[in-house]
Nucleic acid binder design. Structure first.
Lengths: 339, 339
DNA sequence: CTGAAAGCGCTTACAG
DNA sequence: CTGAAAGCGCTTACAG
C-alpha cells in the first residue's frame, strides 16, 4: 500500500509538494505536477483517509441520519429514493456516505458518538416524525448540516423540501374542479411535522378559493400508514353524508382508503374520487391507478447533498431554504362528481 | 473536544493505560480503570476514529456495497430490509456503515478508491444481477468480506443466503397438492444468479416427486421487474392449453402476471393460481393477497454483518456458508384446481 | 515554486 | 499492573 512518501521518493520531490498536488494547490509547476501524477498512477496511490482525517482537515465522509421508525419509514420506497439521491451526489463529489438509522432508544448515544469521533465532514438529516431533537450535537460543534424537510421552523435555513403547499393545493383544486364539494381529508399526524401543516395550508387555500369551509366531520388524522388510512376511511365513509371525494396526505393512507371503499362496495372513482401524495410505486400498481402528487425523492437527496458539499467547500454553515417543485399526476382514481 | 491526553491527565495516568481501558485489555487494576472511566465520562470523551484508523488498527467502518441497478433493485423494499439488518447489527457492535451504490460505469474506480484508502474494516456485498466482479479489490488486500447471496460458486464460503431451493420446492408442491399439473414458471434471468438456479432446482424436485416433467412451453424468463412478469404472462396465458397455475420467482413479476390475468378476465385464484417469492409488502396489498415465500431480508442483513464482525474480531478471512430458512405464506391467490 | 519540520490523536511493542 | 517513546500517513504554517 503506497504512501505519500513512496510517491515523493519516486517523483523526487518532498511530501509537501505531493500534498499540494493532492489538494490542487495552484502553485506547483506543471512539470513537477506531472511527475507526481505519474508517480501516483504508477504506485496506484490513493491517500489514507484516516491520516487526512487526523490532520484535522477532511474525512470525506458525509453522514445521512434517518431517525428510524419502522412502521412509518420502512417499506416506504420514498426513503430509498432519497438515499439514492444523496449517495449519488456524494459519490460524484468523491465523498462517502455513512448511513445511520438512529433508533429511538439509543439514538442519543449513537449521534453523540458519531459527532465526537469527528468522523463526518457534514450531516444530512432526514426529517421524520421522530426527528429534530438531536441535531444540536452537530450544530454545537459547527459541523455543517442539511435537512431534508422543514427544520425547526419555516424560516430556518439549511433545509430542502418539496412544495407541499402547492401539491396539496393542486390536489384539492383538482377535486373541486371535478365538481366535488364534500371532500374528506385524511391527514398526517397533527403534531410536529411542517410538511403536514403545509399540506393543510394548501388544502385550505384551495377550499377558500371556492368559498368552502372545511367540515370537521370529514377530517381524520392518521400516521401515514396504510392501516391508519383504512381506519379513517371506515369512519368517514360510514357517515350519513359521506364524502364524494377524499384527499389523503400520502399514498399509503390512500391505498388504505381504497381498500375500505372496496369492502363497502364503493366504486373508485365512480362513487368516490381519491387523491394521494408522494407517488410511490404502489400508487401506479393500485387498481385503479392512484391520482397523486409526485414528491421528488431522488432530487431532494441530490439537492441536500449538493448544498452540504458546497457548505463544506466554502466553509459556510448556512444556506437558504430550497423548495423543489412537485408534480400533480392525474390517473384513474378521480372522476367528475355524479349528478 | 477531549483527547486521550486530557483523559490521561485528569485520571492521572498515562495515555497507554487509557488506551488499554479503551480496548478492554484485562491487565488494568479495577481502581485505575474506574478513575479512567470517570474521567472519560466527565470529559465526554470518545476516541477519534481517524487516529485509531491511522494506527493501523480499526476504522470501525463496515462497507455495504450494492451494485446499483435501478430497475432491478430500487423500488424493491427487500433491499431496504437488508440495509436495515446490516445497519442494526453494525450499530449494536459500535460499527458504522458506509453505503456504496456502485454504478455500472464507475464502480471499478469507486471500489478501488475505497479499498486503497484503507477506510473499511470489512465489506458486505449484496449480490445482484450485476455483481461478483469487483470483489477481488478487497480480497486481494485481505479485507474481510461477506456476501449476501451465493458468491462465486455454491461451495464458496463467506456467504449467507436464504434457502431458495426449499422455498421453490414448497411453492410448487403447494400448487401440486391443490391438484394443478399445468404449472407455468416465470423465472428470473437464466444467467449468473445462483438464487435463480436454486429456485429452479427446488421447482424440478417438486415436479419430479409427482413424476412430472417440465413443459418448456410453460416457462418464461424475466428480469424480476413487474413488466417482465406482465410480458411473460401475456405469452403464457395466450397459449391454447394455458397453465392453471403459475409460480413466479419473485413477487413483482407475480404482480405483473396478476395484472395481465385481470386484463384477460381471468379470476385469481378461480381460473389461475399464483405463487410469488420474497414477500415484499406489495404482496399483501395485492388483490387477492399473494401466496408467496418469505425471504428474511432483515435477518440476512443481520447475519452477514454478524459474520463479518466475527471475522474481523478473530482475524479470520473465511466463514462457512449460512443458509437462512424461508417461510411459505399461503394467502388468497391459490385455490384447488377446478374439476 | 519547493521543502524541512512539527503535529494531528491514537496504539503498540518494550521496559519496568 | 503501568508508562515512555516511536510511529501510523497525512497537512500546514513557515522559510527559502
Amino acid at each position: 500500500m503506497a504512501t505519500i512518501y513512496d510517491v515523493a521518493k519516486l517523483a523526487e520531490v518532498s511530501t509537501t509538494t505531493v500534498s499540494k498536488v493532492l489538494s490542487n494547490t495552484p502553485y506547483v509547476s506543471a512539470k513537477t505536477r506531472e511527475k507526481i501524477l505519474a508517480a501516483m498512477a504508477e504506485l496506484k496511490y490513493s491517500p489514507s483517509l484516516a491520516a487526512r482525517g487526523l490532520t484535522g482537515n477532511r474525512t470525506y465522509i458525509l453522514g445521512l441520519v434517518v431517525p428510524y421508525d419502522p412502521d412509518y419509514l420502512f417499506g416506504d420506497p420514498f426513503l430509498l429514493e432519497v438515499i439514492r439521491g444523496v449517495e449519488s451526489c456524494a459519490n460524484n463529489n468523491d465523498y462517502n456516505l455513512l448511513l445511520s438509522l438512529a433508533r429511538k432508544d439509543n439514538q442519543r448515544s449513537a449521534y453523540a458518538r458519531l459527532q465526537r469521533s469527528r468522523y463526518l465532514d457534514g450531516v444530512i438529516f432526514l426529517e421524520t416524525l421522530q426527528s429534530g431533537v438531536e441535531v444540536h450535537y452537530f450544530e454545537e460543534q459547527n459541523v455543517p448540516c442539511a435537512f431534508i424537510g422543514y427544520g425547526k421552523n419555516l424560516e430556518s435555513g439549511n433545509c430542502v423540501h418539496a412544495d407541499d403547499y402547492r401539491g396539496a393545493f393542486e390536489a384539492v383544486t383538482h377535486l373541486l374542479e371535478l365538481g366535488h364539494r364534500r371532500i374528506g381529508i385524511v391527514s398526517g399526524p397533527s403534531n410536529f411535522m411542517y410538511a403536514v401543516n403545509e399540506r393543510w395550508r394548501g388544502t385550505n387555500s384551495a377550499l377558500a378559493a371556492y368559498n368552502l369551509d372545511l367540515d370537521d366531520c370529514l377530517v381524520g388524522y392518521g400516521d401515514f400508514t396504510l392501516e391508519s388510512g383504512y381506519q379513517i376511511a371506515t369512519q368517514l365513509l360510514a357517515a350519513e353524508t359521506r364524502p364524494t371525494a377524499i384527499f389523503a396526505q400520502n399514498d399509503r393512507m390512500a391505498v388504505g382508503v381504497m381498500r375500505r371503499a372496496r369492502e363497502l362496495g364503493l366504486n373508485i372513482p365512480g362513487d368516490l374520487s381519491l387523491v394521494g401524495f408522494d407517488d410511490v410505486p404502489l400508487s401506479q400498481l393500485a387498481e385503479p391507478a392512484l391520482t397523486t402528487v409526485r414528491q421528488p425523492g431522488y432530487e431532494l437527496g441530490v439537492t441536500a447533498a449538493q448544498k452540504l458539499i458546497e457548505l463544506i467547500a466554502w466553509g459556510n454553515l448556512k444556506f437558504e431554504p430550497v423548495v423543489l417543485p412537485v408534480e400533480f399526476i392525474p390517473r384513474n382514481s378521480t372522476a367528475p362528481l355524479k349528478p
